[in-house]
Design a binder for these strands. Structure first.
Lengths: 193, 193
DNA sequence: GCTAATATGTTAGCTACTAACATGTAGCGG
DNA sequence: CCGCTACATGTTAGTAGCTAACATATTAGC
């Protein structure tokens, strides 16, 4: 049967090579102007191999590897907290970890995504899954209207923070922006204009 | 020079015929399973004519004809209201007008969009524009973080209401759902779990 | 060494979408 | 009525993302 160890490693290498070359070419010539064929050649494989590793061209940039970690982080927070505070803390903690390890790469990817219409569109689509994750964190079972709105609102705050971070070119710090966005939810939502 | 009246009318007719046939075919066979070629043939034109009227296949379903009316409705509200109340009232009023005139068509379109991944993705992308509209309604000039978050939050509430409406198959009434979603913003956001 | 699994390549095809050029039809000045 | 012009539409050919069918090569396990 099954998986000899070095073969898995080779696959992982091929995958990483494809992703590296893709991101390099996207940075050099832009997303639309880069063809899958070019990425495959740069990584030394055929274009079919590319699609065996990434179902679409968009997935080489997006790939939602963060959701499981977010889910875990939310579950870890005490259930006595206000639901929005729970999500805030979990998101902060999760993103700060990635941020500390890989700040520049994250910034580059977020910027590329937000400046490319096709990637932006797919990003919102992926957030569908993240929102369901928030909903389940906020309440078990079929979510009520209240839970759905709260989950959507948290996602809106998170997204806004990411956008501001990308727009500032990394001048501001992401954790601060996240705190600022969630502070608006808690404080300013019921105030006057 | 230019534009004889009947010619404009003929163009409008062709455009409408394309849209009607497209929506009919989408309803019968699904969005992905319907090809642009089929739509064009059903409307009695070639596939190039389709693209002259609609830049992409998605646009035949989406088309953001609502934003200008929303902008107008927001401006019409007194500026003494809380910004979220203003947007709430404007959205309610605007959507209720469409709703009353064309309830079934609107429901069908929203359902088609939300059940089709490619259309969902483009919908979020279009909301980029709607959000900017909300931001400008909330404050002139370069929007602050607070304004950005508030605009995103309003859009999240609106979107959630539309989703619930589509998911209920029209059993619930859209205006009620909108009120319910915005009530969560005003009331439940600062409460306990 | 033989066999079977598996990663990859080749080829062909579909669909969304674009561009270059051709055609037909209708309005208009002579 | 004729030719000119404008313009909607058609034709054809091409590109890119993506899929599927089949071929090949490398290697795992016997």
């Amino acid at each position: 049967m099954s998986a000899p160890d070095w073969r898995e490693r080779k696959k992982a290498q091929t995958r990483m090579r494809l992703q590296e070359q893709a991101l390099r070419l996207f940075a050099e010539h832009g997303y639309e102007a880069t063809t899958v064929e070019q990425i495959a050649v740069a990584a030394g494989v055929s274009h079919m191999t590319f699609f065996r590793y990434f179902p679409t061209k968009e997935d080489v940039v997006l790939g939602d590897e963060y959701d499981p970690m977010l889910a875990e982080a939310i579950r870890a927070r005490p259930r006595t907290e206000h639901p929005i505070a729970r999500i805030h803390a979990a998101v902060r903690q999760g993103l700060v970890a990635i941020y500390a390890a890989d700040r520049e790469a994250l910034l580059g990817r977020v910027q590329l995504i937000l400046r490319t219409p096709a990637l932006r569109a797919r990003l919102w689509e992926n957030q569908f899954a993240t929102r369901e994750l928030f909903e389940q964190a906020l309440a078990k079972g079929a979510p009520s209207m209240r839970v759905r709105v709260l989950a959507a609102v948290c996602l809106a705050a998170l997204t806004t923070a990411l956008e501001q971070w990308a727009a500032s070119g990394g001048a501001r710090e992401l954790p601060e922006l996240i705190d600022e966005a969630f502070r608006v939810l808690r404080r300013d939502l019921t105030d006057r204009s």
